[in-house]
């Protein structure tokens, strides 16, 4: 009993300590990312897709509602469990016609999405439409410890090689792609992959590379380098890949 009380006190203390300290505040060396398009969020409708050619899918509304029985369905009280009541309707509920679901239009064989004023947004960074080459720096992918996004000292020479390549080829840009192994939850891994991509980006900036030449993206756990389900595969999957981007020929 005493032990329980003591551990409760300890828990309370730990909670208070964490409350006071909170999460870490942002250090000054975190760099802001360039907005892909001017005016980050367009007014509603600016990115609206053309829905004229979509096929409505029949489906009831979500949640408990009168539509669940489909068109023409009714519920009526049973008279003594046997007879069906007459045409007076009893307690039957009127059923509203269900709302169709309309899927987004397919984009493979269709015209591209219209983006209002024609400036397509580019969450990747500022190098939309550039040619991507994943071979050039494929040996420079850097690895991370489980659940960490700090650059390991063993990986610094690869980052130096990436920086050297960028210095030697001043017209190219690079995309840092952050990846995770499958052992995290998917929502968490998307954020962790982003943190890893940003760690790579920050390190390159420290080595003197202009941040405007560096895009970043997180793939979470969806782009494993090794599809195995073991320690060796996971170690290869916790990584940043460096993709060289070259401007398209005019």
């Amino acid at each position: 009993m005493k032990l329980t009380k003591f551990s409760n006190l300890f828990l309370l203390g730990a909670t208070l300590a964490m409350t006071v300290n909170g999460c870490k505040t942002k250090p000054p060396n975190v760099t802001y990312l360039p907005d892909p398009a001017k005016g980050p969020i367009k007014p509603p409708g600016a990115f609206q897709e053309d829905v004229k050619n979509t096929t409505p899918l029949p489906n009831p509304n979500p949640g408990r509602n009168p539509n669940g029985l489909g068109n023409g369905g009714t519920v009526q009280p049973l008279d003594n469990g046997s007879k069906i009541p007459g045409g007076d309707g009893g307690n039957s509920k009127p059923l509203v016609e269900s709302t169709p679901i309309v899927a987004a239009p397919p984009t493979t064989n269709a015209a591209p999405i219209e983006f209002g004023n024609g400036t397509a947004p580019n969450p990747l960074g500022t190098h939309d439409g550039w040619n991507a080459n994943s071979d050039i720096l494929k040996d420079q992918s850097i690895l991370f410890e489980f659940d960490k996004s700090a650059i390991q000292s063993s990986e610094q020479s690869k980052l130096a090689a990436v920086a050297d390549y960028l210095r030697s080829n001043p017209t190219v840009a690079v995309r840092v792609e952050g990846n995770c192994d499958e052992r995290g939850t998917s929502g968490y891994n998307l954020s962790l992959g982003e943190r890893r991509a940003l760690a790579g980006r920050e390190y390159l900036i420290k080595l003197g590379i202009d941040g405007a030449r560096i895009d970043n993206i997180t793939w979470g756990e969806t782009h494993p380098a090794d599809t195995g389900h073991n320690d060796a595969a996971w170690a290869k999957n916790r990584r940043d890949d460096f993709i060289i981007l070259t401007a398209p020929k005019p």
Partner: peptide
């Protein structure tokens, strides 16, 4: 899902 209207809600730099 009723109309098929779709819009890009957030597309800032990064994630």
């Amino acid at each position: 899902l009723s109309t098929g209207e779709r819009r890009n809600f957030a597309h800032y730099g990064g994630m």
